[in-house]
Structures are given as structure tokens and as C-alpha cells.
Design a binder for these strands. Sequence first.
DNA 1: ATGGTAGCGCTGCTA
Length: 263
Amino acid sequence: MRLATWNVNSLKARLSRVEAWLASSSPDVLCLQETKSTDAAFPAGRFATLGYESVHHGNGRWNGVAILSRVGLESPRPAFHGEDPAAVTECRIVAATCAGARVVSVYVPNGRVVDSEFYVAKLEWLARLRAELDATCAPGAAVAVCGDFNVAPADLDVFDPAQFAGATHVTGRERDALAVVLRWGLRDVVRELSPDGPGPFSWWDYRGGAFHKGEGMRIDLALLSAPLASRVTSAYVDREERKKGTSGEVPSDHAPVVVDIDW
DNA sequence: ATGGTAGCGCTGCTA
């Protein structure tokens, strides 16, 4: 099974690239973040034509998450369990069972400024994600939590730790909150297969030619429970997708993270 | 050189 996660920074603006990437990379399951789409506008029909079932949770303009699968998509759940999806103001989590694996697509809040109300809400959101796993899954089952975590887990995940010292995405409290999620029983398989850094980065600022200068961060993660992690054959970032297209199409500021699993 | 880019949507916010 090929499992991937990609923050597309607007599905409407990126649809042709997403469709091309599905055709060229053939993921079995793709988690999307920042669709900036409503459920009504989500192009489920286009994806169905390509052989993918899908579930989307979004209310337009900002945020929005989805899962596409061509290996079955059962028990879709937009929002945290027990939440009324229609009442959610920030759509940041959706789950579905694909080929017997519980797949969760997450878009963790950015946090904006350290110690701001948004930063506090980010820490709380990560704590809620851990509680969600405790309440809805077992670490002995096949579980994949994939998405844009907006946290660089270690200094190895930042191009210049000194430049980012004390900034959001790298603070100890954010890393601790992410570590609590991991301690539920998840493994960061890209880092396991690429123990040396810096990188591999998954996000580069649009500004200042950051991508071509190699100035990125690794904030998009595929976190797998032991039954899945033990069967991983490769895990990597598709940096090619971050380059501009020949027809001048703009890429997302994030690259897809891809995991191949003997599953 | 106190900036820069992209998306949404039409003004300034979010990232």
C-alpha cells in the first residue's frame, strides 16, 4: 500500500497538479490538508473518475482536510468523535478506514505567535488529538496519523535552528505536545528511514526563493502504529512536486510525503 | 533590502 499526505494550499488552485500527481505517483491512500474547500465544492466526482473514493471536511476559505482511497473507504468520520461536523468552525481532522488501516488526516493549527491565544490553542489541539487516539483506536491496530503538524519535531528538521530559536514550530512545548501524540504508539517512519539531516524537509516558504536555497522545515509527518511501521519499505518526501510546472503552474508550499507499506 | 509569495476575495487576513 502506498500512503501519502500532502498540504495542497487550496485544492481549487492545485486540482490539476493533484490529479497529475495521483496519476504519476499512484498512491492508494492520500491525505490532504488545506483544501480551502467546502464539502459542496469538493471535487469528489473528479477523484471518483480516477478510481478514488473520498471523504472531505471543510467549510471553505481556510483549513479543510480530506482522505482519498482506492483500496476502500469505510467508517468515514469528519471532525473529532462526538463532535457535530456541521458545527465545526475549523475543519482540521478527518478519519476513515482504508484496507483495514485507520487513517487520520490532520491539519494542526499554526499557532502564529508563541504564547498567543492561537499558540495555546495549538497545544490544546495536539492534546485533543492524543485524547482522540486514546478514545477511538488501539496502538496494536493498524493506525496512520498523517498530515501537516506545524511542528518540526527536532532541530534536525529545521534548515537553520539558530534562526528559528524561540519561534513557533520549534518550541519545547510544541515538541512536547507532539511527543505526547507519538507516545500513544506511533512512529515517525520518514525520520526512521532517513536518520541523517537536516531534512528531509516538506515545507518551504514561498518567499525569498527558500526552496531553491534549501531553506525548509519538516513539518508534514506520517506517523504509523507498530503493525504498519514494521512493514514500511520506503518513506520519503517527493521534492520534485515542489518545483514549478512546465506550464508555469504554481506548486503548493508543501511537498507530498510518501510511505510504501507491505500491506 | 525593515522586504518577500501565495490564496481568498475584494479588504486585509492567514500562512
